Computed example of a mutant assay.
Amino acid sequence: MPLMVTRPTEFTRRGFLSALGGLAALPAFAGSGLGASLLSSSDAPLFASAFKKSAGGYGIAVLDDLGQIQAEISLPGRGHGIAVSDTGDCLAAFARRPGTFAIVAWPFSRWPMQTVVAAPGRHFYGHGCFSKDGRILYAAENDFASARGVVGVYDVSGETIIRLGEFDSHGIGPHEALLSPDGNVLIVANGGIETHPDHGREKLNLETMSPSVVFLDVQTGDTLAEHRLDRSLYQLSLRHMALDGAGRAWVGGQFEGSKTDTPPLVAIISRDEAPVLLDLPEKLVGQLENYIGSVTATTDQSVVATSAPRGGKTLFWKAETGDYLGHQNISDGCGVAPIDKGSFLISDGNGGVSYLSDPGERAEILARPAGFAWDNHMTALRI
């Protein structure tokens, strides 16, 4: 899995947008292959996303804040989510369910990448997170013989990655996992859907789903709190999360019930309070295909973005109050990453990368690299 680095661009996003002059897109710059050390040659913001190429093949791309691809990491199959350590020097990319590989890379150094293979009887769910000091990687996994969710615990601090063990996720189908701001609590969204690799991505228990969000002690795996929605929402699979400034988890749901139903799709869940469900504005009810694809927050955690790729919309919320701020129409837009206190990059399945400076303003397409289709998530690697 080689790391291929392209020549960095030398202009700013502000200057680029000024020069754009209303154009709808700009082809991505295709530089020559260069050494990996160039990723550390400037302090420009960088982002990472899984991709698929139209010519075949999967990988992870590192992009700058102009949507220009700076590096590529080849993957043996389709990737999904990317975790980045608090120090920003290490990333982990996970296979999409029911894949059994993850890669750990240090993109700003010459340390070799390492491949993690899921333990026997386990597969990854596409997400994970690092401990506060970056030495431990937590991965959402499936113990598929018993339909039991687990969190794999890996030591990534040495020359060889070691699987130390696992925690019970206390649910079925753990998806995204986040670390609390103090580093002491692991927050896990259990999607509630049973799957088995013998059945591919088939959902085996739609009539008996039981999604939840749990708060676990990172040292022991003990349950500190567990939240489930009202029984009437048992088919609202809780998948993706982001933390706001108060440490609350904003959770996006994917509804597996009737297509004619219009349940709430976003919840705010904290350790010691009952879940708060947010109402969609009337004009968007029934427009999101009952599917939230990604959740993220600005760097100051004051604005939360929830993408609905099937509905072609990305919604924005005021984190403190839960008030709806507006939305953008972006076809198949799913990956969302913060740039600063008020700005986002948004990637889409058509290969586009858009810049949004304010929820009330129109997003600008920065780049559309030929032959690339971005996967569901974009992660800030360096801001």
Score class of each variant (00 low, 15 high):
Met1Asp: 10
Leu3Val: 15
Val5Ile: 13
Arg7Gln: 13
Arg7His: 12
Pro8Leu: 12
Thr9Lys: 13
Gly15Asn: 13
Gly15Asp: 15
Gly15Pro: 01
Gly21Met: 06
Leu23Gln: 14
Leu23Ala: 15
Ala25Gln: 13
Phe29Trp: 12
Gly35Tyr: 08
Ala36His: 11
Ser37Glu: 14
Ser40Asn: 11
Ala44Leu: 11
Pro45His: 00
Lys52Glu: 14
Ala55Met: 03
Asp65Gly: 14
Ala71Met: 02
Leu75Gln: 00
Pro76Leu: 09
Gly77Asp: 11
Gly79Asn: 01
His80Gly: 01
Val84Tyr: 00
Val84Thr: 12
Gly88Gln: 10
Ala92Asn: 02
Ala93Ile: 08
Pro98Arg: 09
Phe101Gly: 02
Phe101Ser: 09
Ala102Glu: 00
Phe108Arg: 14
Pro112Ala: 08
Met113Lys: 09
Thr115Gln: 08
Thr115Tyr: 00
Val116Leu: 00
Ala119Leu: 02
Arg122Pro: 04
Gly126Leu: 00
Cys129Tyr: 11
Phe144Leu: 01
Ala147Tyr: 13
Val150Lys: 05
Val151Asn: 07
Tyr154Ser: 06
Val156Thr: 03
Glu159Cys: 01
Ile162Lys: 04
Gly165Ser: 07
Asp168Val: 11
Ser169His: 11
His170Asp: 08
Ile172His: 09
His175Arg: 10
Ala177Met: 12
Leu179Met: 13
Ser180Ala: 05
Leu186Ser: 09
Ile193Pro: 00
Pro197Gln: 10
Gly200Cys: 03
Arg201Cys: 02
Asn205Thr: 10
Leu206Thr: 14
Glu207His: 12
Met209Cys: 13
Asp217Leu: 09
Gly221Ile: 10
Ala225His: 06
Glu226Ser: 15
His227Ile: 11
Arg228Asp: 00
Leu229Cys: 05
Asp230Ser: 12
Arg231Cys: 05
Gln235Thr: 02
Ser237Tyr: 07
Ser237Asn: 05
Arg239Met: 01
His240Asn: 02
Met241Ala: 07
Ala242Arg: 07
Leu243Thr: 02
Gly247Cys: 05
Trp250Asp: 02
Val251Lys: 12
Gly252Ser: 05
Phe255Ala: 07
Lys259Phe: 02
Thr260Phe: 09
Thr260Val: 12
Pro263Leu: 05
Ile269Ser: 01
Arg271Val: 01
Leu278His: 02
Leu278Gln: 07
Asp279Arg: 14
Glu282Lys: 13
Leu284Met: 04
Gly286Thr: 08
Glu289Gly: 07
Thr296Cys: 15
Thr298Arg: 12
Thr298His: 13
Asp300Asn: 15
Ser302Tyr: 08
Val304Thr: 05
Ala305Cys: 10
Ala305Trp: 05
Ser307Cys: 05
Ser307Phe: 11
Thr314Asp: 01
Thr314Phe: 06
Glu320Val: 10
Tyr324Val: 07
Gly326Lys: 09
Gln328Leu: 02
Ile330Gln: 03
Cys334Tyr: 06
Pro338His: 08
Gly352Ala: 15
Gly352Met: 09
Val353Lys: 07
Ala363Asn: 05
Glu364Leu: 11
Leu366Ala: 09
Pro369Ser: 07
Ala370Asn: 13
Ala373His: 13
Trp374Gln: 04
His377Phe: 10
Leu381Val: 11
